[in-house]
Write a protein that binds this DNA or RNA. Structure first.
Lengths: 295, 295
DNA sequence: TCCAGATAGTCCATAATATGGACCTTATTC
DNA sequence: GAATAAGGTCCATATTATGGACTATCTGGA
């Protein structure tokens, strides 16, 4: 199937406009595609079918990405994966987009206080990406979620918290976009089930994943927002089911809420110190088969 | 001045080969250029002159980068800076290139033991980039170096340690490439002075920056290598001059060497677990002004 | 309030670039 | 060792990216 279409769907303005940089758009699409398999990398064939491009074009663009160090090709397996330069760029970008740095203290406090593992998750289109996993001290730990892992919005505690924090029409759009993937690869997360989860999350004040992704691995999550109201990310805590009885959920929700509010305060501070207007350029929709945003 | 030429010089194989992806190469060159000003971002004009491209082309490529989220334009100042997506990509790439993650424990130990601030630095072409700064507890701290800061190889303790760890012909090449910048912007780091520093570093076993970048801010550094011998990065410790008398330098050098060796052991482990051949694709030279120059 | 200068951003005919069908090469399987 | 499959490359062609010339917007000075 067509990975990229799956996750960067929208041809909202189909022919709308030629970007004027087809090849760059395509190359960056490949980069994003490769980023989806951070651990293993992807073989050429999968990149070809995943992108919808043909082999020579794909290869040529990959060579360009490799020249820039953003992609590397594992000599043995010939798989393509993110390069060192991508990592360094990320460190540089962290100066402005240092959610992780801002969140680290909070995650440490959460894990220290609760002994369980805590997570920072952000939204990326219709998916949630785990940016950091802060280990707890309790000897039995769940390893259902690692830094770099990606799941559709709604799958997992932090991910669900973010989805529930979106306005209803966004929720509908996201679920519709993910419907195929959810049904095919996430049993237990059918669209209808997600809608129930969202309602419960909103009523309860925090999200709950009762071991639906990995049995016995439960989690609770809470989203936090930028000063302008956009969802910025989510904090979550995971533990084995025996440590997640309803009473403990309520207990854990307190420090979780505290840290989420703290994040919002820190973000507000960041922006106050900088300007008055909109905090960040709004995300521009993108697709590998570009048609620049209508308008 | 022509920034990119300064730092991505080489037309080692001048006409050698048309890349077949001029625009992608150019776009990624812009990305790298913007990465050099992680804090402020760059105005269009500087990107134009810095890249050697013309305005419409630059702008078109920037739009493509913005569509992908790798670059954002600050609405107020209209400056272009690295986008959120660059940050996220970095986190994803950290799975494979997680020098930082590997180094964190060591940095914490160093700062805890010495009470001074410690750093992880990596090489990027002819420059050194500080990836992390781990604060010490001692109340007087130097803030000469922050995560994301970049200086020519040889400028600063970690940076000098890496330069001194290179084979002589690489040293020559790097110093030649940086000569103009060094003379223009780094008084006290003239090529000849650097060569003396390198000799001393090699003799001593660790590098020393006696407050040459920022007065009273001294540092010592030590490089570490990949299993195949390539320089991977450097660890360093910085403090005010009064805490860097020769006797204390020797004292600090011990844990510094220990942690550097530990890094090499960890890197060796990473590769053993993966394959037998070359550890990573060799960096491919790149330049923004592709082929066509002549004429 | 208006103008000068500077910087940001856009248009569009043209030339150069990226495209992709066909082909070659290297591993893996039976 | 022939067959299959995947990785990789060539090159004439048409599509795409280019950049000179133009317009819009902002800044500060009188």
């Amino acid at each position: 199937m067509d990975y990229l279409e799956e996750r960067l769907p929208q041809n909202s303005a189909p022919e709308a406009g030629l970007s004027g940089s087809q090849s760059v758009d395509r190359a960056l699409g490949l980069l994003s595609l490769i980023g989806r398999e951070p651990a293993e990398g992807l073989p050429l064939g999968e990149i070809v079918s995943g992108s919808g491009l043909n082999k020579p074009t794909t290869r040529r663009l990959l060579l360009a990405l490799m020249r820039a160090g953003l992609v590397e090709q594992e000599p043995q397996t010939r798989r393509y994966c993110l390069g060192e330069e991508a990592f360094v760029l990320g460190v540089l970008a962290a100066r402005r987009h240092g959610l992780l740095e801002i969140a680290m203290d909070g995650l440490r406090r959460l894990s220290a206080e609760t002994q369980d593992t805590s997570f920072l998750t952000v939204r990326r289109e219709n998916y949630a990406i785990c940016l950091h996993r802060e280990e707890g001290t309790y000897p039995v730990r769940t390893h259902a979620l690692q830094a770099g892992d990606q799941h559709p919005l709604g799958v997992g505690a932090g991910s669900l918290a973010m989805l529930a924090a979106l306005p209803d029409d966004d929720v509908d759009r996201v679920i519709a976009a993910n419907e195929a993937v959810l049904l095919a690869r996430y049993p237990g997360f059918a669209p209808d089930a997600l809608r129930v989860d969202i309602a419960e999350t909103r009523a309860r004040g925090f999200s709950l994943n009762p071991g639906r992704l990995v049995a016995s691995s439960w989690g609770i999550g809470r989203a936090f927002r930028y000063p302008d109201g956009r969802v910025a990310g989510a904090l979550s805590i995971a533990a084995i089911d025996s440590r997640m009885a309803p009473s403990r959920q309520a207990e854990l929700a307190v420090p979780l809420a505290r840290e989420a509010e703290r994040m919002e305060a820190l973000l507000a501070e960041m922006f106050v110190s900088k300007r008055a207007g909109r905090p960040m350029a709004a995300a521009v929709p993108r697709s590998i088969e570009t048609g620049r945003a209508a308008r």
